[in-house]
């Protein structure tokens, strides 16, 4: 059986998802305060890394990276409600791209698996 990443379409699928996902994030008042829109290219590159990971693709993130990378955001108030919102926007993105519900659930599970590291607890 093919992997989640293969079923979703690999890197081209990630590329297609980045714009849609990032647009949703920037438009959503629950979470857009955490995203700097000045350096959009750098932000998009980070989104791509995130999406590759939750698509089950190749990545080298460690729990430590996740903690360090979000520490300053946790200090600014990042909490479970924001992680929920991101997972919801992620699901909406995949739905727009025609991904099956079971696969969306699998992506959400992957995203959830780093929740504690992201929230530094």
């Amino acid at each position: 059986m093919s992997s989640l990443y293969e079923r979703l379409g690999g890197e081209p699928a990630v590329d297609a998802a980045v714009d849609i996902f990032y647009r949703k994030v920037l438009s959503d008042d629950r979470v857009n305060g955490f995203f700097d829109a000045v350096d959009m290219e750098a932000q998009a590159a980070k989104q791509k890394g995130f999406l590759t990971m939750v698509f089950g693709g190749p990545n080298n993130y460690t729990g430590k990276d996740m903690r360090e990378g979000h520490k300053h955001l946790v200090e600014r108030g990042l909490n479970d409600s924001h992680v929920d919102a991101i997972i919801e926007l992620l699901g909406g993105t995949l739905k727009e791209l025609g991904v099956a519900d079971a696969d969306i659930q699998e992506v959400a599970d992957l995203a959830n698996s780093v929740r504690d590291d992201v929230l530094n607890r």
Binding site: V18, Y22, S27, A37, V38, M40, E41
Partner: peptide, 15 residues
């Protein structure tokens, strides 16, 4: 330019 880039992206243009 930075403000427009964001607004145009949100208006549907690919990055």
């Amino acid at each position: 330019v930075n403000k427009l880039r964001k607004q145009i992206f949100l208006a549907g243009c690919n990055m």
